[in-house]
Nucleic acid binder design. Structure first.
Lengths: 187, 187
DNA sequence: GTCACCATGTAAAGCGTTACATGATTGT
DNA sequence: ACAATCATGTAACGCTTTACATGGTGAC
């Protein structure tokens, strides 16, 4: 249960509305923690009730008003507490792995197209991550080497993790395709 | 929603009781699809009601009786239907990535011990996978090259995926550790 | 005697997904 | 007209997690 903590991190990086958070969860933060706007609005309300975040009504021109949330002292404390808790091994859900083992009892060749499609989405994601890395993490580093920007370094190492994950996945899917094609010669 | 399909695959590989399934979900199948015994018992009941699986009461000596489940024709059909459905991109939950970005607003050095512990669990898992590969997938292959054992090949490619994942994770965690240590010189 | 293993469940609370709902503005 | 974007929600249902519950056997 850490959606609230992901929201705290995102609001510390930049305050914003529920809608803006929902869009961030379709992009940067969402690459390693998924959430829909319905979840976000529900959790924001609870966090506000618990005093973790402050709200400010912002009137906008030619757009609906929005509620801008920012992290309160209680929220910072909650985040700090959570950061010091031990990391539990996360539970895994690799649907494709289940399907591959299931294919032994069906037609393995029927999976080939699906795996190719799946491989494409991971290759696309890898390309997107690499473009983001070039955009945000090349060029001038922090000017003084003794005082690096911790946030930037940490965001970069998380992105490198995403890149390593996608590279590994694409390579494994090539292995899967070769295996499936080896079982069904003539395709 | 695919716990029922993971159970079907596991029961096709070998029929067994709810308890035995729960143990398999702590081992082989559980490496890519986690489930607790409470979930399993509930789903088994529903699957039995839908006619996907058959039950057989087995009396045992010096042990409680058990209910042995096996896949019925309706279950095989349901699995086949599911295998032909498109694979949806899975939603991700990388708690550690959230913590790393959160560490920018706290003490990054405090994460080092946790990441080291986390790295150890992944290194252990990698060692276990490699031992399993040596045990189950070396030595004589199927005697006739034209008739390979599809199930064995498919189980092996899934295991290779687990190995690739753990290797990648351990390497990334080394990167994370180097980054954290670089931010806090003198630790 | 206590712990681990075998074997099966119930109950409550919280979390996640899907569908529905509203209403303004901007672009084609 | 229609779709997309901005902005915020409610409702229903199902899944997951955690705790509780029972009862026998075998090993140390």
């Amino acid at each position: 249960m850490a959606l609230e903590h992901a929201i705290l991190v995102s609001l510390l990086e930049k305050p914003g509305s529920g809608y803006e958070l929902a869009r961030r969860f379709d992009r940067s933060i969402g690459y390693f923690w998924a959430a829909t706007h319905q979840q976000i609005y529900r959790v924001l309300k609870r966090m506000e009730g618990e005093g973790w975040i402050d709200v400010r009504e912002v009137a906008q021109q030619e757009r609906p008003d929005k509620k801008e949330y920012s992290v309160a002292a209680l929220g910072r404390a909650a985040l700090s507490r959570w950061l010091h808790e031990p990391i539990e091994p996360e539970s895994v859900r690799h649907e494709l792995a289940v399907k591959i083992r299931g294919a032994a009892f069906d037609d393995p060749a029927a999976l080939i197209r699906e795996v190719e499609r799946y491989r494409q989405t991971h290759a696309d994601r890898l390309a997107r991550y690499l473009a983001g890395e070039r955009r945000d993490f090349t060029g001038p580093q922090a000017p003084v080497p003794d005082a690096p920007d911790a946030g930037r370094e940490l965001q970069h190492v998380v992105l490198r993790g995403g890149i390593a994950y996608e590279r590994m996945t694409v390579a494994w899917l090539d292995d899967v395709l070769a295996t499936l094609k080896g079982l069904a010669p003539g395709h």
